[in-house]
Structures are given as C-alpha cells and as structure tokens.
Computed example of a mutant assay.
Amino acid sequence: MIRSLLYVPGNMPRFLDKAGQRGADAVIVDLEDAVPEDHKTAARDALAQTVPQVAAHGSRVFVRVNMTDRLHDDAAAALRAGADALYLPKVSHADILHDLARHLAPLELGRAPIAFVPLIEDANGLFEARAIARAPRVLALSSGGEDLATAMGALPLPEVLRLPKLMIHYAAKAAGVLSFGMFRSTVDYTDADAIRMAASEARDFGFDGASCIHPSVVALLNEGFAPTSAQLDWARRVVAENARQAAAGRGAFTLEGRFVDAPIVTRAQRLLDQAGESR
C-alpha cells in the first residue's frame, strides 16, 4: 500500500533530515513549486545525498521534477540518486511520458526502470487521462487540486474538484494503476477532522492514498486509507466461509444475513491483501 505521500522541499535540509522518519509510505522530494528558481539547481544536485538519506528509514522516495527545460536533468539526477519514481507535474498528454522513458532508458543500466506518477493539472490533461494512464512506467495517477482549479478559473472547493478528480481516478483504475487523491486541496492541513473524513470518503471511492504537505497529516492518511480491524474481521469471515461453500459446490451464499457472491469475495480478499495477509 501507498497510503500517504509527504511532500518535502528539496532545498530544505532541516525538513529532509527527518522526512523518512515521519511514517509516510512515500516521501516526495520536491524540486518544483516548493523550491525558488534560484535554488532549483542546488536542490537537484543535492539529490545524491537526500534520496539515500530519506530511503534509509524505509520510505519509498519519489522526486517531483520541473516540467520545463530542467526536466531531463532533474529526472536523470533523481534516477542516479536511486529514487523509486518521478512525480511529473502538468502532464497534458502521453507523449511526454513516452519521450521521457526513451531518454532515461540508456541511463538505467544496472537498475530497474524508474516509475512515473503523472500529475494532471489542466483541462487538456483531464481529457487525455486515459492515454496518460496507459503510458510507459505509470505507477499511479494523481492531480494537483490547486493547479487544476486555477487552470479552470475556479476555486479548489471539494464540489469543484470532485468531477475532475473522479475522471482521473477512473482513468487510473481502467489502466490498472494506483490512484492518489482526495476531494479537497492539500493546502489546508490544519483541520484534522475534515482530513480524516476526506480520506475515508476517498477510500470508499477506491482511491489508494493521498499526498500531504505537513507531517501531521501522515498518520491521518495512513489510518484513513488502511482497512479497519472490523473490515478485516469481516473479510476473514467472508473468505473462510467462501472456501467452505466452494468445497460444497456453492458459489453464492448468505453470511450473517447478507448475500455474498464473487464480487464481494473479491472485495474481501483485496482487503486482506492490502493488510499483507496471504491467501
């Protein structure tokens, strides 16, 4: 599971020093919006130290690069530093990913290909989401709520973000990749109750995790996107009863007053898989 992704500015050593200890499933070392232009090259050069430093504590390490003439150099530096994936902002069409994959392939001798997480942040990208999701190396899709709203001349309110985020989410699920996000902006990180509710809602829709910009939110996301103990207990009972019924030649049955058939068994097994419980 990748339930929580914590953004950390790539030019802030005091934040990077502890980023890997915050409990996030992935840390996003940011070279883009969080870093002023005149600090971007130094932040990129520091990846050789910061990526292994964060990874040493067990977190996956992603790097958000700049979708400018810095792209290839940022991506190559992240690759050489050992990052697991590139967070790619402002992806408006799949050709960007095909071109970047071709550029990086000769640099990857001796390591697995670096994965891509495209961020869809404008209307063009929104309508190309299915092609973007099917492009090479895509691990997950996400969206930039603030940028997306700004591109539409709108405010990043939950009701504004719901439809475009669902379109991106459905494109990810159709392609069989992960989907990150909630129906709210990441900027407001102080309302713990609202974040907790948003994470629970997003998980009900099938989102796999979400990003945040403050370490206080990590635990809320880890809790919100993980199965509860009650859900796991239910899943174990469903899977166990399904095995008994299947042995008797029945593919559907009633358990605790509720009808159970193949889709429900699959849902239960997925919960157990998420929790690391073997089949």
Rank of each mutant, 00 (worst) to 15 (best):
N66S: 15
V61L: 05
A75I: 07
V61A: 02
H72W: 04
A55Y: 02
D74K: 00
M67E: 13
F62T: 10
Q53R: 14
M67P: 00
G58D: 14
D69V: 01
H57W: 14
R80E: 11
V61F: 00
D73P: 05
D69R: 00
T68N: 09
P52C: 04
D73E: 15
A83N: 07
V54F: 08
A55M: 04
A55K: 04
R60I: 06
V51T: 02
H57C: 08
V63D: 07
M67C: 08
D84M: 06
T68R: 12
R60Q: 13
V51K: 04
H57N: 09
L79T: 05
D84E: 11
D74I: 01
R80L: 12
V54I: 12
R64M: 02
A81E: 10
A77S: 09
R64H: 04
R60H: 13
M67Y: 07
D84H: 15
M67N: 15
A75D: 10
V65Q: 00
Q53H: 11
R80W: 04
N66V: 15
L79H: 10
A76V: 15
G82L: 03
H57K: 09
S59L: 10
R64P: 06
D84G: 11
A75M: 12
D74S: 01
A75P: 15
F62Q: 09
P52S: 07
R70H: 11
D74P: 02
A81F: 12
A75Y: 12
A83G: 06
V51Y: 12
V63H: 08
R80G: 05
P52F: 08
V63T: 12
V61P: 00
S59V: 11
V61Q: 02
V65T: 03
G82W: 01
M67K: 09
V65G: 01
A77P: 13
F62V: 07
N66T: 06
A76P: 13
P52E: 13
A55Q: 06
A55G: 02
A81V: 10
L71E: 03
M67S: 12
G58C: 06
D73Q: 15
A83H: 04
V61C: 05
V63P: 14
V63C: 14
D69Y: 09
A78Y: 03
Q53M: 14
A78M: 02
H57A: 10
Q53N: 10
R70G: 04
V54S: 02
S59N: 14
S59Q: 10
A76D: 15
A77D: 01
M67V: 00
V63L: 12
P52I: 01
R60S: 08
D69I: 06
T68C: 07
G82Q: 02
V51M: 03
T68F: 13
G58L: 12
S59W: 14
R70N: 05
A75H: 09
V65I: 10
A78D: 02
R70V: 00
A75G: 06
A56R: 10
H57T: 08
Q53G: 04
A78F: 03
A77W: 03
D84R: 05
A75K: 09
